[in-house]
């Protein structure tokens, strides 16, 4: 019953939904500490590894970006289904972020405006390869259950490092001044 936990590397998946990859860039900003992290975690599905789908069950999924289209929903659901913990990484995942500033507009009008041709007609692409837009950009916790939130646009490398080290050592992550930022 009380056998000690065998130290093993945690499997981490990451993904960027409707974001700018800034949070991923910030993740890389932990610089040489990446080596330290690499000793503690294995990366599964992630733009960093170029693994397209979760190869096995993960411990942590770091999700950047809000949910703006059907594909985002599929990716988020896959991560939720295959991870023990889902972390909303950055402003867009936490509250929709700047993309959510379209939320008071009708998505149809947005499309018509964006795909207006010089002659005044509209040519909205209908390629099935393109993910369809949702009516709004949603924070990820409105689509799936989310365990932890790490705000910031992006959260700094130091903030991400603090968060990850708390998580890896079994502490409830605590982000305070000056690491806690919404911008």
């Amino acid at each position: 019953m009380n056998a000690p936990l065998t130290p093993r590397k945690l499997r981490v998946a990451t993904a960027s939904l409707s974001g700018c990859f800034g949070c991923h860039m910030s993740f890389l900003d932990i610089d040489e500490r990446l080596l330290e992290l690499a000793a503690l975690v294995d990366f599964d599905r992630s733009p960093i590894t170029d693994i397209k789908h979760c190869s096995q069950r993960c411990d942590v999924a770091l999700v950047e970006g809000g949910v703006c289209n059907a594909e985002n929903v599929h990716v988020l659901r896959e991560l939720r289904a295959n991870s023990k913990m889902v972390v909303a990484l950055g402003a867009c995942a936490v509250n929709g972020g700047l993309p959510a500033q379209r939320n008071h507009l009708d998505v149809g009008q947005c499309l018509q405006q964006v795909y207006r041709t010089p002659d005044g007609s509209t040519a909205i692409p209908n390629d099935p390869e393109l993910p369809l837009l949702l009516d709004k950009v949603y924070p990820i916790n409105e689509i799936v259950r989310v365990d932890y939130f790490l705000p910031g646009c992006p959260p700094s490398g130091d903030t991400i490092w603090k968060f990850m080290t708390d998580l890896l050592t079994g502490r409830t992550p605590r982000i305070e001044h000056p690491l806690l930022k919404f911008d």
């Binding site: 059907a70 009708d106 149809g108 499309l111 209908n126 369809l132 837009l133 949702l134 009516d135 689509i143």
Partner: peptide, 29 residues
């Protein structure tokens, strides 16, 4: 389940379906 969104995700695609004229499988959730 342990969580369900407050809204119908498929319905949230309806407006985009209407404008693109799509009704393929990927146009639904």
């Amino acid at each position: 389940t342990d969580f369900v969104p407050a809204f119908d995700l498929d319905a949230a695609l309806a407006r985009a379906r209407e404008l693109t004229g799509r009704d393929d499988a990927a146009a639904h959730l």
